[in-house]
Structures are given as C-alpha cells and as structure tokens.
C-alpha cells in the first residue's frame, strides 16, 4: 500500500519535472518558456520531496520532516527568480511573441544606466 503511494508520488514528481524541462526546450519565446520551469518543476520537486518524507518516516527512525524546508524554500524562491528573470529580459528587450505594453518600453528607455554589453556569461 505504502509502496504504491510512494511510486505514484515519485512518478508524478518525475513526470512534472520532465514536462517543465520539455516546456523550456520546446516553447518559442523566452516569456512562455519561463512558465514551464517555474510551475511544473516546483510541483515536481515538491511531490518528490513529499515521497522522500514518507519514505524516511516509514523507516522507523522517527519522523523525517526536514524535506519541508527544501519544499518551502523552492516555493518561496521560484516566483522571485521568475520575476527577476522576466524583468531582466524586458530590460534587454528579448523578443516576445506577445505585444509588450508601451508603458514598459517607455520606462526602460528612460533608465539612466546602460545595459551591460557582454557576449557570453
């Protein structure tokens, strides 16, 4: 019974992680690609961590709860890095399938600092 639950959780987690990366590789512009990793992977890793939590708690050496920390951390940081990434992309005027609002164009041209010119990171 426990085995089945664990297997389902692990497989769901792995499938969501895979779909997230598939979205990253497959979608066409940067802003749509941003959706895959931020959503699909957080749930994927989340359910993997829940599986790990159940697995180690069932070993009989006390309850194992420290996986909650990683889950919580990922859930808090994923939106922040997604927002920063899209902000950086808008600042650098990365191509978009959708129409970028005129408001952003205006504000980004007014900023006084120049975008760094680097060829590779």
């Amino acid at each position: 019974m426990l085995d089945i639950l664990l297997s389902v959780l692990i497989l769901t987690g792995a499938i969501f992680t895979f779909i997230g990366s598939l979205g990253l590789a497959r979608l066409r512009d940067f802003y749509t690609r941003l959706h895959g990793p931020t959503k699909a992977t957080t749930l994927g890793v989340g359910s993997l961590l829940i599986a790990s939590m159940i697995h180690f708690s069932a070993q009989g050496e006390g309850v194992s709860l420290h996986e909650i920390l990683v889950t919580l951390f990922l859930f808090i940081t994923a939106p922040v890095s997604a927002h920063l990434l899209s902000k950086a992309a808008l600042h650098r005027r990365v191509e978009s399938q959708a129409q970028v609002p005129a408001q952003i164009e205006e504000a980004e041209t007014q900023t006084h600092f120049a975008a760094p010119t680097v060829d590779r990171l």
């Binding site: 940067f30 994927g44 993997l48 790990s52 180690f56 990683v70 990434l85 950086a88 680097v118």
Partner: peptide, 30 residues
Amino acid sequence: DQPDRILALDTLYVNAIALLVLLGIHLNSS
C-alpha cells in the same frame, strides 16, 4: 539570449535537486 541561459541554469539546479532526492530514496540514505 542570456536570460534564456540563466533560466536554463536555474532549471538545472531544480532538476539536480530532484535527482539528489531520488538518489537518497534509492540508496536509502538521508
């Protein structure tokens, strides 16, 4: 573009975490 690469790097971290958690379950070690 560079944001694409940073996003890929970020996803790589998340995938590495998933792989490590799986390895932990597989080898039965925390």
